[in-house]
């Protein structure tokens, strides 16, 4: 059971309502994606914390159903 890019985007936006999300399907198997997430909620957070926030939004799918999600996160440029 894999995840679609739309599912990933939906989950991330539920967790980070203001997020701008861009998903790239790396392998076409519903299992390997790259995602760029920009959200004001990341301001002042370390890279690890930012990624943890995205993983939390994915509610446990990460590492299970979703094997690989190459994440690039940042706060919006002021």
């Amino acid at each position: 059971m894999a995840m679609s890019a739309a599912d990933i985007e939906k989950h991330i936006k539920e967790g980070l309502p203001d997020a701008q999300v861009e998903i790239k399907d790396l392998a076409g198997d519903g299992n390997h994606y790259a995602a760029t997430v920009i959200s004001a909620a990341f301001k002042g957070k370390s890279r690890v914390q930012q990624h943890q926030m995205v993983y939390a939004a994915l509610k446990g799918n990460m590492g299970g159903v979703l094997h690989a999600l190459a994440l690039t996160t940042s706060a919006p440029q002021d």
């Binding site: 890279r47 690890v48 990624h51 943890q52 993983y55 446990g60 990460m62 590492g63 299970g64 690989a68 190459a70 994440l71 690039t72």
Partner: peptide, 24 residues
């Protein structure tokens, strides 16, 4: 570490990150 993926890198007991963060 409440981090869902492997690998995980630690330097001097501190969690640095997974594969993406290491690569970046």
């Amino acid at each position: 570490t409440n981090w869902p993926t492997i690998p995980q890198l630690y330097i001097k007991g501190e969690f640095v990150g997974g594969a993406d963060i290491m690569y970046e």
